[in-house]
Design a protein around this nucleic acid. Structure first.
Lengths: 339, 339
DNA sequence: TTGTAAGCGTTATCAC
DNA sequence: GTGATAACGCTTACAA
């Protein structure tokens, strides 16, 4: 009935030794076609299933640890798709865990992954992670890639979108195409590297424009609700000419808040990540596209390479973001607010 | 340096036997406080880490298989949060894989999970899964819960939202509160059980109303893009009085398409799942809330119970959906009583 | 309370 | 080409 069928049973049934049976299963070693057939037949009739756990005791395991802050944020979801599909397509399984963006959870999960002997680790570190995390992972000595968020000062392999460039693209569009003189950056955790980098890009774009542009930045959670709150707060004062949001959820919240205040289209809004919903919102959302899926695939491929012995250290890799211009930053938006 | 420290090393260092060391780690057996301290100290100084894989060779493993169609669909993301957090909080790890809603992938992944000796299985089956899947899982003999989608005729434990009720709530609102005489159901895979059940609910609501209401249903993918296409197709003809969409992504696409045709608000739209973006869309989306997270938690808890030996078969569990009324279904007649 | 020893199912080494 | 045999790191009766 159960998985009580072992390699020994197969070997006995096929009239060979465990070794030969093992050779057939793993494809290793030299086995005559005749015996191979026989073994395969036995496997089939006996209903044998390979025991990865037992095998891992001798050879390297085929399980990969994947750590993310929240599975439900659309962007991370896309990244996960990329990571997971790449690994399973190569015969590896992903042990996915979410830290809820909390450092203590992260430490705990890291330990559990260690106990599970994962062969590699892909991690989007929790906000606030520092050298301690890097050191812990480093001393552990398992191939690792940091994803989407990097740790300041770390030299570990990193795959992410070029945040500085993303901020630049957004601000440049506002300043040059729309002649904005005041810009607000909304959202993201205060110390998040993505936020800081994007703001750098924003400032650079402003500086390059040669015009005097005022910049205000506000932190917030990365949720629709937070965007709604931020939008209402914003509309209590004088609106900036343009708003850059830390992600699309916030942007949708801000746009909605302005709409509720009867000021739809009163300022230009740019989101970040270009998730699926961006194109369907009203107004449709201009957004900095980052292609999370590609990010995930890239990271996974890098890890697979290292595991396969391609020793040469994985180098960091930045993908190029792209600005997708839609209605939310346009001047052509009619005022559809409820009168 | 690496994880070369084994229980033997710990035992030697602490001056005890493997057994005692093992007792300390697992909390099993009787050990004097003195020796326990000593062992723990050794573990610390030696940097020992438990080897779950090796342990699983003797006792039951602590890894759970989780199969979903797509990680990136917001609703499934919520379900996963519930499943994963519940399991990790209990010391189990989730081996998550996505089938891309394809049967061959699903079969392959099922096999891999088996080889990894998972202690239990939570699965949202791919569209089109049938008795074959149930039989395969059943003969495998591992505690299993079907999640969110059930297999027709299967008696395996199932945790999901009451789809019939959801369809009823949506249609009842359209028919009674808005006096709709024509309704379209848009989206979902043709043979999906959720779709079929919801349509049952819709028909029941129509029948109960005693009025003659025409019902049209169209299948589609569950994406924003598909919603856009469906919305444009819809607006080429005469619009129905009300539209029920298979999920919120489709609903947002439909609403957007109408907007693009200059017919925003020309019909009432109801979405499904009530994902975060629903409240921020313009118009904000009326939606049937299903609480995916709770679903995931419930399923995980049921599995944990079975694993812990609470033999009595997990019974199926349906959660009650709730209609969240917002702007997209328009001019509300004050009738908030779809209790 | 602690130690001895027999597995768990696989792979690696080295003979034949 | 094929087959003994020794690991791999841990759990768990059974003794002491």
């Amino acid at each position: 009935m159960g998985s009580r069928v072992t390699l020994i049973d197969v070997a006995r049934h096929a009239g060979v030794s465990r070794t030969t049976a093992s050779y057939v299963i793993t494809g290793t070693g030299r086995v005559s076609t005749a015996t191979r057939e026989r073994v395969l037949a036995s496997i089939d009739t006996l209903g044998y299933v390979y025991n990865e756990g037992a095998a891992s005791l001798r050879r390297k395991g085929r399980t990969i640890g994947v750590i993310v802050p929240n599975i439900d944020r659309p962007f991370f979801g896309e990244v996960l798709i990329g990571v997971e599909s790449t690994f399973t397509d190569s015969g590896y399984m992903s042990l996915m865990v979410s830290t809820r963006d909390q450092l203590d959870q992260q430490a705990r999960l890291l330990r559990m992954l260690r106990e599970h002997q994962v062969a590699a680790l892909a991690i989007i570190p929790a906000t606030g992670s520092d050298r301690d995390l890097v050191n812990a992972i480093h001393s552990w000595d398992v191939p690792t890639v940091f994803l989407s968020r990097y740790i300041a000062g770390s030299t570990e392999p990193y795959v992410g979108s070029d945040e500085v460039r993303g901020g630049y693209l957004a601000a440049d569009h506002l300043v040059r195409a729309h002649r904005c003189r005041s810009i607000s950056y909304i959202g993201g955790p205060e110390l998040g590297v993505a936020r800081i980098d994007r703001l750098h890009g924003v400032r650079r774009a402003i500086a390059e424009s040669g015009t005097g542009v005022s910049l205000v930045d506000v932190t917030s959670e990365s949720t629709v609700e937070a965007g709604l709150r931020a939008g209402h707060a914003l509309s209590r004062g004088e609106l900036p000419d343009g708003v850059i949001c830390h992600n699309d959820s916030i942007a949708m919240g801000v746009a909605r808040a302005l709409y509720e205040q009867g000021r739809a289209g009163a300022t230009r809004i740019i989101g970040y990540d270009d998730v699926a919903a961006a194109q369907a919102s009203v107004p449709s959302l201009t957004s900095v596209a980052t292609n999370g899926r590609l990010l995930g695939e890239t990271a996974a491929q890098a890890l697979l390479a290292v595991i396969s012995g391609a020793e040469p250290t994985v180098r960091s890799h930045l993908t190029e973001p792209r600005l997708v211009v839609r209605e939310s930053c346009g001047d052509h938006i009619e005022d559809r607010s409820p009168s």
